[in-house]
């Protein structure tokens, strides 16, 4: 990483922006914004995000994920290949981070009031973790009653899928921003501002070209920080931004980095990612691997 203390931020290039359409819809629990040269590509992106939401929402009692939560400890449940793909990657990051990221924290999130309690579920096993989840290409089963919540990875996955769908339509460039989980493609870099936790004032700017970026932080009602959705967030960290090729990976990696475990650097290497950490005391620390380890 070249820390460009001496360079002015690049002024964004908007030559092609004038010809772009931008739409925004309330999806995935946040505002999803899609930018592309024409409506057909935008529609393809949104349709894909709607499909991912219907498969993976932990809030929707008829999603595939909810079916796994209800039935998975009794028998294996057949799922869509997309559900299997994101679950497999979630388990990969759980193992790599020794549980700093864990897709089985639905019970904890419900206890914190971030997910609806579900009385139709059996009492959850408090010892359950990602190692109790088994996924093949089409089947999922659970060793114990637990509640999967893909809140830390599904948004990124939805962004990846939307970008793929937009490329398939044949457009030159496009950007998807699902509440801070961002991915862009095309011949020119997309300027992205990283907002300060709490106040959302612009803090840093990055140029994103054929890559993904995600930020994890929190806001409470007063504009302060709220980390309840993060299982083991370090009290020293205000926000973490990660850049990598896959939005699914950047989404999961932000959750790993906010917990500041020994595995953080290993995990960044696995994805060839770089990161920007904002500490509560005001320090802003960029991190980039000298040589990708994978």
């Amino acid at each position: 990483m070249v820390l460009s203390d001496c360079l002015p931020p690049m002024m964004p290039s908007f030559q092609i922006m004038g010809e772009l359409e931008r739409r925004c819809r309330p999806l995935l629990g946040t505002f999803v914004e899609i930018t592309a040269p024409h409506e057909k590509a935008i529609a393809a992106g949104f349709a894909t995000i709607v499909k991912v939401q219907s498969l993976l929402s932990a809030h929707d009692p008829v999603s595939e994920l909810s079916a796994v939560n209800r039935l998975g400890h009794r028998r294996s449940v057949t799922v869509d290949p997309w559900t299997a793909e994101v679950l497999q990657r979630a388990l990969f990051w759980a193992e790599a981070s020794c549980g700093a990221f864990d897709p089985t924290l639905g019970g904890l999130m419900a206890a914190r009031g971030l997910l609806a309690r579900n009385d139709s579920l059996l009492p959850l096993d408090p010892q359950a973790n990602w190692r109790d989840v088994h996924v093949t290409n089409r089947e999922v089963w659970l060793d114990r009653p637990l509640r999967l919540d893909l809140g830390g990875i599904a948004k990124g996955f939805a962004v990846d899928c939307a970008i793929d769908a937009m490329r398939a339509v044949g457009v030159q460039c496009g950007l998807v921003n699902a509440g801070g989980d961002i991915k862009g493609f095309g011949p020119e870099a997309w300027p992205v501002t990283i907002a300060m936790p709490g106040s959302r004032e612009p803090l840093a700017m990055v140029e994103l070209q054929n890559a993904a970026l995600a930020t994890s932080a929190g806001h409470d009602a007063s504009g302060g920080l709220d980390m309840r959705h993060l299982a083991g967030a370090s009290p020293a960290i205000a926000s973490v931004t990660v850049e990598a090729a896959s939005a699914m990976d950047t989404d999961a990696l932000t959750k790993i980095l906010v917990s500041a475990t020994l595995k953080s650097v290993v995990c960044l290497g696995l994805a060839g990612a770089s990161a920007l950490t904002i500490f509560v005391d005001g320090r802003v620390i960029p991190f980039e691997l000298k040589e990708p380890t994978a």
Binding site: M11, P12, F14, P26, L27, G29, T30, F31, K155, L175, N177, G179, G180, D181, I182, G184, W190, P191, V192, T193, I194, A195, M196, P197, R200, P202, M205, L208, L213, A214, T215, S216, A217, G218, H219, S239, T241
Partner: peptide, 14 residues
């Protein structure tokens, strides 16, 4: 005018 893509803490659409 210029800064329109923002990555930050997720805002709820509730």
């Amino acid at each position: 005018k210029d800064i329109k893509n923002i990555s930050g803490a997720t805002l709820s659409c509730r």
